[in-house]
Amino acid sequence: MALVRVISSDGAAFLVSQRLAKRSGKLKTEIETFRKSSDNSEAQPEIRIVTIRAEILRLVLQWLQQHQNDPVLPANQNEQDGRGDAEMGQSQWDRDFLAPMDLGIVMELILAANHLEVKGLLDITCKLVESKITGRTVDEIRTAFKLKSDFKGNEEEQTRLENRWCVEN
């Protein structure tokens, strides 16, 4: 079985099968680039991911491992209909997988999933964040995500006016 070494930003190396790694769009491209530039087709590719630390990379790979037999979704299929995708991907295993994570880890995971182009993982993590937005007021969202309003003048008022028909009872 062909293997690939994936190295995290803090130097930890993970040895995974190329078949598994190729389920990530980014790793797939990297492996192919390595193949083309390498004379020896038997050589083991080594990929350095400078933006992702070991803990997060391990989680991504763990998720890929679990979902290695899922059908691959074309990246742009059903772009409008995000809802359907997420429900397909959301299994009990996923829920258990995400349950112990704090928001910081989830955020890093989202960045990692986005960087490595793992659509399924990106969907379920985004869905998790969305569930923290659902039904909250603007102030509650700002507090939960530690964000500050940077609207100037009547910008906020303008938006509020546009929203009005939707939020008023």
Binding site: V138, F145, L147, N163
Partner: peptide, 9 residues
Amino acid sequence: DLANCRLVC
């Protein structure tokens, strides 16, 4: 919810 998100920042 989207309406609220628009007002965050």
